[in-house]
Design a binder for these strands. Structure first.
Lengths: 224, 224
DNA sequence: CGACCATTTGATATGGATCAAGCGATGTGG
DNA sequence: CCACATCGCTTGATCCATATCAAATGGTCG
């Protein structure tokens, strides 16, 4: 499969142009459990690394986060994207199996995982919310896996619809992530992603004011 | 992609030959919370269906379960396989997004999801175990998604190693599921699965005493 | 023994990967 | 302020892994 040179961290410089996602006022016991000042991460910086001990659970205050796994041969996969209000860092075991990186300038709030679990044992509402958060993550990853068995057009369509649900302003989606990120999330090459965008634009399913902005014109067509 | 005729339920008849997995004595608060007599399901029968309300969380006592999703065009995907001791049915929202089916004769124990969550709010140990179970499911699905971006040989290799971890007796894995199930789990066709088994046998990574039995001869080769 | 089905094997087609070049926007130095 | 370099993205040409179509094989059960 595709092998690319990785580790060109300063290529992230230009990510700084990426559009900021509107902050969302966090609600619920889980969110309120995450005390303290939000921690800021610059575009492209690492929030936690693969192999590091799992200590915290995170909530995005504003910005965008990707979880990344790089295979030994250089192939790169993205496990998921997280935006304002989303919980991430829910992993099993003692160490992270993925790396989390800020895509644009991002702020997150954290809680110690052990504290959270202990508190859930006292607080019914928190237990329910923790269950909801983890179940939602299962559903999200499941949906991701489901995407990966589809054709290129279906993958990109599903991706755009998903982003439409999560970060659109009306029909406009401003993508914080690069084509490469999208490609690595969808399990295809950057060229195919680009071509597919062009095809969808040609069939008027979307409009592309610029590379990072997508207008969802015909959601039914994207769903096929 | 591949379209196949579905709904030939009685084709499952021959599944009855599939080998039974040894029962495991369930342990932990979560398992003990699942009261009552294990419920039995015959090979090929449905445990819950897509679209039905989510009421219970399940634990496999013995047997094997698959979760299935059939797309509108007939494509079929398998979300996961569950064996003795595994928890399944952890889904978000009000209705199941997948169907669960017994692959062979299977017994499961259940607990009402609402009861479980309520109890977790009282019982720290249960809260911890519930979190572990859901996190494990996240890790499993993640791993599944990761598989789907690899080559055919890598997918089959990973699959066999996973089964080796979960249901092997020494180096022998007796697969309860059909080639079609494996294909739908790995996002490839039955022909490619079959060919890949043959190739792996040719390179002495595995031996195939019969179609349903696999001897893992060289795990390093399967890992690549 | 004969029918049925799962599995394997063979031949061909194709969607997307790979290799390669061009384009456009942004930033930089003269 | 313009020429140039850089970088992300797009477009084009070719190749290959896997899908698709087709048929043979082999195990199981009535």
């Amino acid at each position: 499969m595709h092998v690319r040179d990785i580790g060109k961290q300063n290529a992230e410089r230009s990510e700084r142009r990426g559009t900021r996602v509107d902050p969302v006022v966090p609600s619920g016991v889980l969110a309120r459990s995450m005390l303290g000042v939000p921690i800021k991460f610059g575009a492209g910086s690492e929030i936690y690394g693969e192999g590091e001990p799992v200590e915290y659970v995170y909530e995005v205050v504003h910005g965008a986060v990707r979880t990344v796994k790089v295979l030994s041969d250089g192939r790169r996969t993205i496990g998921g994207f997280y935006f304002a209000g989303d919980i991430f860092g829910l992993e099993e075991g003692d160490e992270h199996s993925l790396t989390a990186e800020a895509i644009v300038d991002t702020a997150v709030r954290v809680i110690r995982r052990r504290t959270l679990i202990r508190m859930a044992g006292y607080d019914r509402e928190l237990a329910r919310q923790l269950f909801t958060a983890t179940s939602r993550e299962i559903a999200r990853v499941h949906n991701h896996a489901l995407m990966l068995i589809k054709t290129a057009q279906e993958r990109v369509g599903s991706f755009l619809l998903e982003m439409g649900e999560r970060i659109s302003v009306g029909d406009l989606v401003v993508l914080p992530m690069s084509r490469q990120d999208i490609a690595d999330y969808l399990g295809m090459t950057i060229e195919t992603v680009s071509r597919t965008f062009t095809i969808l634009e040609g069939s008027s399913a979307i409009a592309l004011p610029n590379a990072r902005a997508v207008v969802l014109r015909d959601r039914a067509a994207l769903r096929q």
